[in-house]
Simulated assay, not measured.
Amino acid sequence: MAQLPDLLPDSAVKPDRWAQFRGLSPWQAGGTVLPLVLIVVGGLLGGLAGGAATMINLKIARSGLSSAMQALAMVGVVLAAAIAYLVAAALLSAALG
């Protein structure tokens, strides 16, 4: 008996937006999304810095580092993103004003 072809393309299946956060502990998930606060504070520039920091923190959370090292690295990434936002905002302000 012939096998019927799959008539539904893979693109018709709705992707799971939260799949990359599944399996993380609550503190890891919180540390991963913490940089997104920069969106509220900094608009587009804050969103760019916060989005990049979120992706980096997600990689850190999935790494094999110990919990203490993951926490320190995530805090460092959040601070670096905030500093990068402040420097970019200052440079843009100086260039425009």
Rank of each mutant, 00 (worst) to 15 (best):
L48Q: 03
G51Q: 09
G30H: 03
L96Y: 07
A89D: 11
G43V: 06
S93W: 11
T32W: 01
L65W: 05
A19C: 00
A71Q: 09
A80M: 10
L48K: 04
S93K: 14
P26T: 03
I39P: 01
I60E: 00
S11T: 13
G30W: 12
A12T: 05
L4I: 05
A2Y: 04
M1E: 08
S67Q: 13
L65E: 05
P9K: 09
G31Y: 01
G76F: 10
V75Q: 11
L58P: 01
L34Y: 12
Q20K: 14
S67T: 13
V77D: 12
G47N: 10
V41A: 13
G76W: 12
D16E: 13
I83L: 15
A81F: 10
V33Y: 00
P15H: 03
A61R: 04
G46R: 02
A53C: 10
W18G: 00
L72H: 10
S66T: 12
A2Q: 10
Y85R: 09
D16R: 10
G47A: 07
F21M: 15
A82Y: 07
K14Q: 05
R22N: 06
K59T: 10
P5T: 09
K14M: 05
L4K: 02
L4P: 03
G31N: 03
R17K: 10
G23L: 04
G76E: 07
M69S: 13
P5F: 07
T32D: 09
A88W: 11
V77R: 06
A49I: 01
Q70F: 02
R62A: 13
S66E: 12
A49D: 04
A81K: 04
G97W: 02
L72C: 05
Q20W: 12
P5I: 08
W18Q: 06
D6A: 10
P35V: 08
W18F: 10
V75C: 07
G30R: 09
G31C: 07
A68V: 14
A94M: 02
G76M: 08
R17G: 05
G30C: 00
Y85Q: 12
L7K: 09
